[in-house]
Design a protein around this nucleic acid. Structure first.
Length: 506
RNA sequence: GGUCCGUUCGUCUAGGGGUUAGGACGCUAGGUUUUCAUCCUAGUAACAGGGGUUCGAAUCCCCUACGGACUACCA
């Protein structure tokens, strides 16, 4: 069997969205599982839709995701270049071949004429299809005499080249995910292969490049399923071996109907893009997973499960990229569209954050602290991280979870204060203050021992002391072990906080 | 409208003729934590509907419904 070679072929018309990233992921996984090559090809045949920065964005995304490509822009291989705009000159030759073999023809219909036809049909409730049933009545080299065609070409009249879809053929195709797909070729239209601007359309360029680049498997989104017959027919017309096809299920919006679109994300409160994207024209900024603080492992793991599962009764859900490669197969890709669930993504993220070292997380937290004008030793920050890490989903949660390790509360939660701060609380806090002042060893253990002993000796309820004390130190009823907090901030700071609380709440 | 694809808990899914239809997220409850969160345990909840085939269908076939994609000189 020939070598497995797959490609990810995005169009640089904007940022890649999460569905595109999944397509890239599945291609990558399939390639690596089968010891094959993963190729990136930029499909920029439509110069009018080209968006500056989009190609860099694609490459940067793949880098961030940790799914490197073997060949592609900036990574030359034997079958480059990998940008269709740079392969421009090569396609005309193949269009000519089709013309010669009678599988394609010149068409001179103007865009206006076609629009008119479409409108007329629509008015009658019909759809205009350019194919066998009307091609002889339109302006093309099939309908016109040889002389007329020659004259038009000599006069440099603009033309396109259309594929001549075969008539009355029952086309049998096979999709690796969906199985047999049968189609009647009579319903096909004669798609444009070569545009009047001298560029090929997606269909031609795609087939030519996949063949020239020796692609063995075409793994792409389900939105391409309707053009699979055309593509298969094209391979046949060229007499080339047809690669295997696999059409991935769509990714749907979390709520409501339809496929996930670029607009949904910020509207619904979660990113749809891997990286933040600033629109070069409007200046609008769309949020990205990276900037929101997601780890690439979390995003990849989440994406892998959108339409795939190891199967065979496996209940495993946490997979590293290497494990994904090992377990991946096209047979276990599901057929139905998958609604995207932001909550589950957070769950993955929470998991992967825990796998990061305290040291690494502490150094990231330092950046946030610095912004707030707080200086703390790396040892201290690491200690804090250790106690709050498991409660956090993002590095950005750290401050909310641990600000009281660095600054004293400026306000007190009203509800909590009402509940915890009663008559006589001030006196109790005064006593605790004295106790702290007299404590030499300010370790968590000693603190706990001393305070508990004092409470027991005084024969007051624990809640009567511990609750206001927490309020004093934290400002709300939350946070890790109170003795750890007091021990960490130190005697001086603890006493200051007690004074402040008594002053404010009494 | 036409063509094609799809449909198991709210969501992601396992399961491919005989299962108490399994797991995960979410949600709810309990436990731990004298707080909150994490964590642990338990619970909640599904085969779109109708016909076949079969001793027996979630599983195979057909129809219906619903959903989606496509229907450009865009990819």
């Amino acid at each position: 069997m020939s070598k497995v070679r797959v490609r990810f072929a995005p169009s640089p018309t904007g940022p890649l969205h999460i569905g595109g990233v999944r397509t890239a992921l599945f291609n990558y996984l399939f390639a690596k599982k089968n010891e094959g090559d993963f190729i990136v090809r930029i499909e920029d045949t439509d110069q009018t839709r080209y968006v500056k920065g989009a190609e860099d964005y694609i490459v940067e995304t793949l880098n961030w995701c940790n799914i490197p490509f073997d060949e592609g822009p900036g990574k030359p291989g034997d079958v480059g270049p990998y940008r269709q705009s740079e392969r421009k000159d090569l396609y005309a030759k193949y269009a000519d071949k089709l013309l010669e073999s009678g599988n394609a023809y010149y068409a001179f219909d103007t865009a206006e004429e076609l629009t008119t036809h479409r409108k007329n049909h629509e008015a009658k409730g019909k759809t205009f299809i350019y194919n066998w049933h009307n091609r002889l009545k339109l302006s093309n080299s099939l309908a016109l005499s040889k002389e007329e065609v020659q004259k038009k070409l000599a006069d440099k009249e603009p033309y396109v080249i259309r594929f001549k879809s075969p008539e009355n053929e029952a086309l049998k195709m096979y999709d690796e995910i969906r199985g047999e797909i049968d189609i009647d070729t009579n319903i096909l239209d004669d798609k444009v292969l070569f545009k009047s601007d001298g560029m090929p359309t997606y269909h031609l360029a795609n087939i030519v490049d996949d063949h020239l680049m020796k692609i063995s498997h075409v793994i792409r989104g389900e939105e391409w399923l309707p053009s699979m017959p055309l593509h298969v027919l094209l391979y046949k017309a060229f007499g080339w071996e047809t690669p295997k096809f696999a059409h991935l299920p769509l990714i749907l919006k979390p709520t409501g109907k339809g496929k996930l679109s670029k607009r949904d994300g910020d509207k619904m409160g979660f990113p749809v893009f891997p990286l933040e994207w600033k629109d070069p024209n409007s200046g609008d900024i769309a949020s990205g997973y990276r900037e929101e603080g997601y780890l690439p492992e979390a995003v990849m793991n989440m994406l892998a499960f959108l339409g795939w599962n190891e199967g065979e009764g496996s209940e495993k859900e946490i997979y590293s990229l290497d494990e994904l490669i090992e377990a991946f197969s096209l047979e276990h890709v599901s057929k139905g569209g998958a609604k995207f669930d932001p909550e589950k993504t957070k769950w993955f993220q929470h998991h992967y954050l825990q796998t990061r070292s305290d040291f690494e997380l502490a150094s990231q937290y330092q950046l946030i602290l610095k912004e707030k004008g707080i200086e703390a030793s790396s040892h201290y920050v690491e200690e804090v991280i250790k106690t709050i890490k498991e409660r956090a989903t993002f590095v950005n949660d750290f401050w909310e979870l641990s600000s009281f390790y660095f600054v004293k509360p400026t306000t007190f939660d009203e509800k909590a204060a009402k509940k915890a701060w009663k008559e006589g609380t001030s006196e109790i806090m005064e006593n605790i203050k004295v106790l702290l002042e007299g404590t030499e060893d300010f370790s968590q253990e000693t603190l706990q021992e001393n305070i508990k002993k004092w409470i027991t000796d005084q024969e007051i309820g624990f809640g009567k002391v511990m609750q206001p004390l927490r309020l004093t130190m934290v400002g709300e009823m939350k946070g890790p072990d109170l003795f750890h907090i007091i021990s960490s901030i130190g005697k001086k700071e603890a006493i200051k906080r007690i004074d402040f609380a008594i002053e404010t709440l009494s």
